[in-house]
């Protein structure tokens, strides 16, 4: 078995497991009961799945200039995905669309009306 075959096998494993995580993320968005839980499913397994697929791609293609793009894709995904999730979660909380029954602790709803005090920087 040559090195290229070994790398291709590892690449295949990475891609398959990455695809599996992406599938689980999709299932989670469907199956979980409330919005914020679904946001968890949309961030974590999805990002890990994408990173694994990108790793697999890099191991399979083995071209230096492509690796730069793959790293950028992974980096921007890790930066933007939490922001998108945060915006959706924050909007849901402010619009009082969050199902607070399922929460064991809720330290945000106890505060004022969720607004930041005026005059904050």
């Amino acid at each position: 078995m040559t090195w290229t075959t070994a790398l291709d096998v590892v690449a295949a494993i990475c891609m398959l497991s990455g695809a599996l995580f992406a599938l689980i993320a999709a299932l989670g968005v469907l199956r979980l009961p409330d919005l914020l839980s679904r946001m968890h499913a949309a961030t974590k397994p999805q990002v890990l799945g994408l990173l694994l697929v990108l790793t697999g791609l890099g191991l399979h293609v083995r071209e230096p200039e492509l690796i730069g793009i793959l790293v950028l894709i992974g980096f921007f995904q890790m930066i933007t995905s939490p922001v998108a999730t945060h915006m959706v979660g924050r909007a849901a909380f402010r619009a009082r669309l969050v199902d607070t029954e399922g929460l064991v602790v809720d330290e945000l709803s106890q505060l004022d009306n969720g607004e930041e005090p005026r005059g904050a920087p």
Binding site: I24, L32, P33, D34, L36, S37, V47, E107, L108
Partner: peptide, 26 residues
Amino acid sequence: DVVVSSVHVAYAVLRPRHRPRNAVIE
């Protein structure tokens, strides 16, 4: 930690009839 939390969320998704108990903390 990314791997651990992904596996955790994936496990919670796949468990049948499991209702996650969440919290909002400060």
